[in-house]
Amino acid sequence: MARRIVDPRAFERCFEEHFPAVHRLIARRVGTALADDLAAETFATAFRRRHEFDPRAGSLRAWLFGIASNLLRNHWRAEQHQLEVDSRLAADVELRQDPGLSDEQLSASLVAPQVAGALADLVAEQREVLLLHAWGELSNEEISCALGIPLGTVRSRLSRARATLRDRLGGFDFDLWVLADEQNPRRRGDTHA
């Protein structure tokens, strides 16, 4: 059952439970160095505003991600720059031949430059919603609570973001990804030139 976090011990439990997820979400967006500061600031802000959290209005996780999202808006340029750098990196050919690489690592390496480029093309508001959904694993309703925007707005931003992604990742053969995964994992995620 969701509980308020006014009591310091309740807040401690909140910190222990959610700090890793908040830190990781921030780190995936702007890097670990900046994430250390922003995650700390997120929980300092949460402590100051802990009286405002109402478990009836939404999950604690969503509330914390909302605070983190507000802080991340001040670092939009850093996020954009990192995405553009990642988009220019060629997939490491040698990486594909590394038998010690897990499937997840291989997939991430192969598709990373294209995803980075696609995310860089998104307007900030759409990217924010998409990443709360994909990385934060928040539902549309939770994103609505986290960002304080109407549910319809969440849906439209997510829909537009996914459409942009599909367009930008048009050269990526998801069917081949699946087929390759079944027949030859080392070829998984190969792109059409």
């Binding site: 830190h23 995936r28 670990t32 994430a35 250390d36 929980f43 997840e104 995803v115 998801f174």
Partner: peptide, 25 residues
């Protein structure tokens, strides 16, 4: 897999917070 799966794999190897990050928070 779809475009969301592609995003989910992106930067999925980011490690959890370090002890220094915990301490700073």
């Amino acid at each position: 897999p779809d475009e969301l799966d592609a995003v989910r794999t992106f930067r999925s190897d980011i490690p959890g917070p370090s002890t220094d990050a915990w301490a700073r928070a």
